[in-house]
């Protein structure tokens, strides 16, 4: 049987295939949203570790999403190449490039998820004054103090932890609080909760998100290109 490479290329680069793939991803994500029970540890470990450790009966929807997204990534790339080739001779540079930049942003976001799924790390721990987190290079983060303020109803309205980062013979002091983590060697140290007085203890998490920068770049590229597209459209309809 003769294989027509042109036919395969055309099918892979077709809009119809892209639309079907998107529908498939949506259906599988919807299934995943109902299948993930309260006991799932999917957010506690790197995603590839979760996929390796849980039975396929529990993770089939994510395997399906990954497979479809892999084809969708290829489809997006080929559609962009085709579109650029066809439009190269006509229209302004912005018209040619902006939708493709949005596709690029989408691809960046998928790569970011892959990076985090492969190299992500998360560890929760309870710390007290004097507790230390030791990093592979021997540097340490030592917690020295905790502080909190409470509302009349007893809810914490603000809380923080003071820490020392001891690295290469230098000591740097920092204060962490919700939304204000401390970053060291690509890891973020996050203050999640604090024990009520008179106890001096806190719940801390250490995270590593290797895909964060790529996701931010993808989001930024997508958003900027989207705004340019809107501006162009406004000009056209004005």
């Amino acid at each position: 049987m003769k294989i027509s490479y042109t036919n395969i290329y055309n099918r892979l680069a077709s809009l119809t295939l892209g639309l079907w793939l998107l529908c498939g991803v949506m259906l599988l994500l919807a299934a995943g949203s109902f299948l993930q029970g309260e006991g799932s540890i999917i957010n506690e470990v790197a995603l590839l570790d979760w996929l390796r450790d849980v039975p396929t009966g529990e993770s089939w929807w994510l395997w399906g999403v990954i497979a479809l997204l892999a084809v969708l990534a290829l489809n997006t790339l080929l559609c962009s190449i085709d579109s650029l080739r066809m439009k190269w001779q006509k229209g302004s540079f912005l018209v040619r490039i902006v939708p493709q930049l949005m596709h690029l942003g989408f691809l960046f976001i998928m790569i970011a998820h892959l990076q985090t799924a492969y190299g992500g790390f998360k560890q929760a721990m309870q710390v007290e004054p004097g507790s230390a987190i030791t990093f592979p290079d021997g540097s340490q983060i030592v917690f020295t103090d905790f502080a909190a303020t409470y509302s009349k109803m007893g809810m914490p309205t603000a809380f923080s932890a003071t820490l020392e980062c001891r690295s290469a013979g230098k000591v740097a002091t920092a204060v962490i609080s919700p939304n204000h983590p401390f970053f060291h060697l690509g890891h973020g140290v996050y203050l999640k909760d604090i024990a009520p007085p008179p106890m001096k203890a806190a719940l801390v998490e250490v995270h590593k998100e290797p895909g964060a920068l790529m996701a931010l770049s993808g989001g930024a590229v997508f958003t900027v290109a989207n705004l340019v597209l809107l501006a162009r459209r406004r000009e056209k309809t004005a």
Binding site: Q36, I42, T116, G120, P178, N179, Y190, F222, N226
Partner: peptide
């Protein structure tokens, strides 16, 4: 899209991750 990007930035500073696999994120993606 801008909401998802700002949500990712908030999540990264607040939770330590720009993404969580919970029903809200599933349906936001959908």
């Amino acid at each position: 899209s801008a909401s998802m990007t700002s949500g990712g930035i908030w999540g990264y500073y607040a939770w330590g991750t720009y993404w969580l696999w919970t029903p809200k994120e599933f349906w936001t993606s959908i």
